[in-house]
Design a protein around this nucleic acid. Structure first.
Length: 115
DNA sequence: CACTTGACGTCGT
DNA sequence: GACGACGCCAAGT
C-alpha cells in the first residue's frame, strides 16, 4: 500500500468489470481514504485529461447519477458508453444502479444479492 | 500565501 | 424524504 491514493484509484478503476458500475465513495474507501470521494473524481479527471484509458464512465456517485458526464468532453459520451455495456441510463441516472454496483473488493464474482 | 472550486459522502435538521 | 451544512484533499486563481 505504498502507492499513492491517486494510483490506487487508477488501478481500481481499471479493475471495474465491463457492464458494471461503482461509486466514488467505494473507490475512495478501497483506496484507504473513505470520505475522500472528491479526490477520486479529481484523480479520474486528471487521468482522463492525461488520455489514460480508464473506464471512468463506470464510476458514478452514490446516487447512481452521471455527475461527471461533463468531464468527458461530450456529456453524452458517458451515457453512450454505459448503454454500450448494457446499462440503461435515464435522465442522467443509471437504472437498477445497485444491481450493477460493483465493489473493488470483489473483483471476481458479484454476490451483491445481500441487499 | 489565502480563498475558492471540484466527477462526493455523511450527518443533522 | 428533502434540504442544508460540514468534511475530505488537492489544484487553480
Amino acid at each position: 500500500m505504498d502507492k499513492d491514493f491517486f494510483d490506487r484509484v487508477y488501478e481500481i478503476c481499471r479493475r471495474i468489470p465491463r457492464g458494471r458500475v461503482t461509486s466514488y465513495g467505494a473507490i475512495a474507501r478501497a483506496a484507504g481514504s473513505p470520505g475522500a470521494a472528491r479526490m477520486v473524481g479529481w484523480a479520474l479527471n486528471k487521468s482522463f485529461a492525461r488520455g489514460q484509458s480508464l473506464p471512468a464512465h463506470r464510476v458514478l456517485n452514490r446516487n447512481g447519477m452521471l455527475t461527471g458526464k461533463k468531464a468527458f468532453g461530450n456529456p453524452r459520451l458517458m451515457q453512450q458508453l454505459l448503454e454500450q455495456e448494457g446499462i440503461r441510463v435515464e435522465n442522467d441516472q443509471v437504472v437498477d444502479f445497485k444491481s450493477y454496483f460493483w465493489e473493488p473488493s470483489e473483483d471476481s464474482f458479484s454476490k451483491a444479492d445481500t441487499i
